[in-house]
């Protein structure tokens, strides 16, 4: 990925590789050499897809409020607003690793619940330690997290609350998922794998690699198909036993 980020401040770009199950991240850093080094660390890890690099908060914020990313590498002191001001204005809370050359920000880092703090320059080993902390951290209250009876999803640049009882089923669309309710369809950037970890197991059941259904909405089942509001949803062989087990069959 040599020179990938070079001379592209503020330019949104994607790296061409994407490992299965990898996390997405954005770099907000005004020092080019630091941004290049970070991007290289991300590539080397094989676990991070860099979605973009911005050199200031003003350019980063509109992008970050339109997409959902897993991890934000954030410098603190940049021209204009600081990294902390960006966090104040974000509509959701990805994991954050601060990249700065000042240790004085440690207290603020704690206040903002950032996952780790990389003092520039840092070694790849130190980068890996930070990444492990991100992976080990509990999910934040953000897209897909649930309370007892509802879920918040990020769609069209805002967080929308959906009651579990209103969701009929959820369909995978690659890097996106579609939530279908009786009234509306919502598309959000997420994967089925991540969603499975977050949704209520009492309400929802995976019936196919591309479908999660609300158990209470199933009208009937015929062989390898189930029906919700007249829509046919396939049940895969791998999931059929679990489906039958969860149904209240008398």
């Amino acid at each position: 990925m040599k020179k990938l980020l070079k001379k592209l401040p503020g330019f949104i770009h994607s790296i061409t590789y994407k490992e299965p199950g990898s996390m997405t991240c954005v770099i907000v850093e005004d020092l080019q050499v630091a941004a290049d080094y970070l991007a290289r660390c991300c590539e080397k890890s094989g676990e991070l897809e860099v979605k973009g690099h911005f050199t200031n908060v003003q350019e980063a914020l509109p992008y970050l409020n339109q997409v959902t990313i897993d991890l934000l590498f954030l410098d603190v002191e940049m021209p204009g607003a600081s990294g902390f001001e960006l966090l104040d204005q974000l509509a959701y809370h990805p994991k954050v690793i601060l990249t700065t050359s000042k240790t004085e920000y440690a207290y603020n880092a704690f206040e903002y619940k950032v996952t780790d703090f990389l003092k520039k320059p840092f070694t790849y080993q130190r980068f890996q330690e930070a990444l492990q902390k991100v992976k080990a951290a509990q999910p934040e209250i953000t897209e897909g997290n649930t309370e007892d009876d509802h879920i918040f999803i990020k769609t069209d640049g805002k967080l929308v609350r959906l009651q579990n009882n209103d969701i009929l089923y959820i369909e995978s669309m690659g890097d996106y998922v579609k939530f279908i309710t009786a009234e509306k369809k919502y598309i959000t950037h997420n994967t089925m794998k991540k969603l499975e970890e977050k949704i209520s197991k009492d309400h929802f059941l995976k019936v196919h690699r591309s479908y999660i259904v609300n158990i209470n909405k199933i009208a009937d089942i015929r062989e390898n198909m189930l029906f919700i509001k007249g829509v046919e949803i396939p049940i895969s062989k791998a999931h059929k036993a679990e489906v039958l087990k969860r149904l209240n069959i008398v």
Partner: peptide
């Protein structure tokens, strides 16, 4: 402050 980490790298 901006020059500082560049020297470190």
């Amino acid at each position: 402050h901006k020059m500082k980490p560049a020297m470190g790298f």
